[in-house]
Computed example of a mutant assay.
Amino acid sequence: MPEIDAFLGLSFCLYFFDNKQHKLPHIHVKYGGYEVIVAIETGECLEGYLPNKQRKRAECHIAAHRAQLMDMWRKAVKGQNPGKLEDLC
């Protein structure tokens, strides 16, 4: 599972071939001992938990990079390295 970005203590990861369980394009976000799985297109929490402050930061970061994350997810589910998230600012 490559880490594609780290932001304010949050680690954003995509698993290879990870389209079986949740079916939706999604990203794994880790913070300390917590992990949440977030749908890229909607920002919906599919599974897991992050403290409220970190969850809001993660949702904002995902929303700001939605198009790029979708491209990266398409690569990862094919087993290709998605690369790193580029800073768009």
Score class of each variant (00 low, 15 high):
87 D>S: 01
65 H>I: 06
54 Q>I: 09
34 Y>C: 07
77 V>W: 09
22 H>D: 02
33 G>R: 08
7 F>C: 02
61 H>T: 05
76 A>H: 09
50 L>Q: 03
53 K>M: 08
86 E>K: 14
3 E>F: 00
53 K>C: 00
33 G>K: 13
84 K>V: 05
2 P>M: 14
19 N>M: 05
25 P>R: 11
37 I>L: 13
77 V>Y: 04
62 I>C: 12
10 L>G: 11
78 K>L: 15
62 I>H: 04
4 I>V: 08
18 D>P: 07
42 T>P: 13
52 N>C: 04
51 P>M: 12
3 E>M: 03
32 G>W: 01
52 N>P: 04
64 A>T: 13
21 Q>A: 13
20 K>P: 02
42 T>Q: 02
66 R>N: 06
62 I>Q: 10
69 L>K: 01
35 E>L: 11
45 C>E: 13
23 K>R: 14
27 I>T: 07
36 V>T: 13
70 M>Q: 09
53 K>S: 10
68 Q>T: 03
46 L>I: 07
73 W>I: 09
20 K>C: 09
49 Y>I: 15
35 E>D: 08
33 G>Y: 06
31 Y>A: 07
75 K>Q: 11
80 Q>G: 08
51 P>C: 12
33 G>N: 14
31 Y>V: 01
4 I>E: 05
75 K>S: 10
1 M>T: 14
31 Y>R: 01
18 D>N: 04
58 A>F: 01
59 E>A: 11
45 C>I: 15
21 Q>K: 15
31 Y>L: 04
46 L>Y: 11
53 K>A: 10
3 E>S: 08
35 E>W: 03
73 W>V: 12
76 A>P: 07
70 M>F: 10
21 Q>I: 15
39 A>E: 01
27 I>V: 07
42 T>K: 06
82 P>G: 01
12 F>D: 04
40 I>T: 12
4 I>S: 02
79 G>N: 07
45 C>T: 15
36 V>Y: 02
40 I>S: 05
76 A>C: 00
37 I>Y: 05
58 A>C: 03
11 S>D: 01
80 Q>A: 14
15 Y>T: 10
62 I>Y: 02
74 R>W: 14
65 H>S: 03
12 F>V: 06
49 Y>M: 15
78 K>P: 02
70 M>Y: 11
83 G>D: 08
12 F>K: 01
75 K>W: 06
32 G>I: 10
48 G>D: 13
9 G>T: 07
55 R>A: 05
42 T>W: 08
89 C>T: 07
14 L>Y: 01
